Amino acid sequence: MGEKRKSQPKEESAKKARSQKHSSKDSAGKEAATAELGLSAIPYPKPVSGSSFAECTAKVTVTLAPVYSCDHWAGIHEALNNMLLHYVPQVRGVVLAYSKVKLRSDTALMFFDSPYGQLEVSARLLLWRPIAGMALKGQINVQSPDHIGMLLWDTFNASIPASLIPKDKYEWRPFNDDEIAARALPSTNQSEATGDGNGDDADVAMTGQGESDADVPASPFTSGNRYGSGEWVIKGTSQCVGSDGSLEFVVVDVIRANEVLSVTGALR
């Protein structure tokens, strides 16, 4: 009995040593995984190559009003024009243009007592069809601590929320009072820049003679990439994101609201 009692503490200490060894390995593995993901892990989608623009030939059912009974082509073009810049679920994209319109039937169908006829046509459609994982580039139009807003091809909206901006690479830097004052100077001194109103100065401003744009130093506080009360910069530096006013990002989600598409992106 005495020998058994002496062996119990040795067995318990061995079990504790093995458990501590396994726990240290697990913690080391978790730390390595966290280091690989970065300080702020962002769920980037799988990369997708190719363009966000696509073409397809689609069958479209056109509803013709009675006024177009003598000119069905006018009614067809009006119906197709109403699809432009709208999201169409049947083709899974925003219709930008159409061409090669052909009739699929010589007669229009009319149902019950409705005066409207339905005619089937086919058309070649140019679509904007963004997909998660694509790399797109947009023009910055607003920056705030909550997000970066952009415009794609001067038409579509895109937004990068702060949660999808890696905090280990970028940080928000608010403008100081001097920068805010410098950004307001060109608008207040616009009359001075264009002349004092006499004929000579007006002629110089209209003809473009005198100092060229290259001779006039551009103010860094009025460039197209500075908006609001601050800007997103590369961490540890004063270099703003999208120094030329444009910014490349990865599409994370495509949001459809009624017939309008907008894109949510993430910085890499």
Rank of each mutant, 00 (worst) to 15 (best):
K100R: 04
L39D: 04
L64F: 09
A14N: 08
P174W: 00
G199V: 10
T34M: 01
A214R: 07
G242Q: 13
A28L: 00
V121T: 14
K4S: 13
L37G: 02
L126F: 13
P47S: 05
E171M: 08
V95W: 07
S52M: 13
S27Q: 03
N82I: 00
H147T: 05
S219H: 15
A162Q: 08
T57G: 09
Q139N: 13
L37H: 03
Q190G: 07
R92G: 07
G197K: 02
R183C: 11
T34D: 01
G242Y: 13
S105Y: 05
Q20F: 08
G224M: 15
R226M: 14
D168V: 05
E78Y: 12
T194H: 03
M110E: 09
W172H: 04
E211R: 13
P47R: 10
V241M: 12
V62P: 02
L37K: 04
S187R: 12
A205P: 01
I165G: 00
P89H: 11
S27P: 00
S40C: 04
D113F: 10
N258C: 03
G245E: 14
G38H: 00
L152P: 07
A123C: 15
Y68D: 13
Q209N: 07
G133W: 12
D196P: 02
E78P: 09
D154S: 12
F175Y: 13
H22Q: 02
G138A: 14
N189S: 11
D154A: 06
P161Y: 04
S52E: 10
A202Q: 11
D154N: 12
F175E: 10
W232D: 10
E120W: 09
G50Q: 01
N189W: 09
P130Y: 11
K6L: 13
V91F: 09
A41N: 03
I180K: 15
P45W: 02
S52N: 05
E248V: 13
D201K: 03
A202Y: 11
M83Y: 05
M83W: 04
S69P: 05
L85H: 14
N225G: 11
K46H: 10
F175V: 06
I255S: 04
K16H: 01
Q143T: 15
F249N: 03
S229F: 15
K25P: 00
P186L: 06
T237I: 06
L261F: 01
V62F: 05
H86K: 15
K167H: 06
A158I: 05
A158W: 01
L84H: 09
L80D: 04
S243Q: 06
R183Y: 09
K59A: 01
L109G: 01
V260C: 06
L267E: 08
N258S: 09
E248M: 07
D200G: 06
G228D: 12
